[in-house]
């Protein structure tokens, strides 16, 4: 009788574990892929690098260029630049991520700037009297 009871318990646990494992097997890769993709696209290091690259890349246009960059709809950033060094601090509002500030360099004569809690950037270059003039503006998607 005891052996039979143990067998039934064992079987019930085994099947529940099997179903759970199957669900997790399908769900976990998708979950981690989504999390890693979200974090890699919205990470401060990536945003700092991309933004600095776009600012420098705007110098490539001989006359006029306007570049819009919106790294994330959900995440806001504090962005500041001084002496051609750009700093980005994200606001994740999540217990499993850290709001670490990252930096990158850019190479054009863009005046120092500072924006708080923004996630859309617009970089403009114009040429006036044979002189390149750069500007940047930022806004929030809300």
């Amino acid at each position: 009788m005891k052996a039979q009871l143990f067998k039934k318990w064992f079987l019930s646990l085994f099947f529940i574990a099997l179903i759970t494992a199957l669900i997790l097997y399908n769900f976990l890769p998708y979950f981690f892929e989504s999390v890693s993709l979200f974090l890699s696209l919205s990470a401060a290091e990536v945003v700092a690098d991309q933004l600095a690259t776009l600012i420098t890349a705007s110098s490539v246009a001989p006359f006029y260029i306007e570049i819009t960059y919106a790294p994330s709809k959900e995440i806001k950033y504090d962005v500041s630049a001084k002496n051609r060094r750009l700093e980005v601090k994200p606001y994740y509002n999540s217990p499993v991520t850290r709001d670490i500030t990252k930096y990158a360099f850019y190479g054009v004569n863009l005046p120092d700037f500072s924006f708080e809690k923004v996630n859309i950037f617009s970089i403009t270059k114009i040429v006036e009297n044979s002189k390149s003039i750069y500007s940047i503006s930022a806004s929030s998607s809300d």
Partner: peptide, 14 residues
């Protein structure tokens, strides 16, 4: 990356 970007900027520089 910095080198390539800057070289590209330089060949447009007035």
């Amino acid at each position: 990356r910095y080198s390539i970007l800057l070289a590209n900027g330089l060949i447009s520089h007035e």
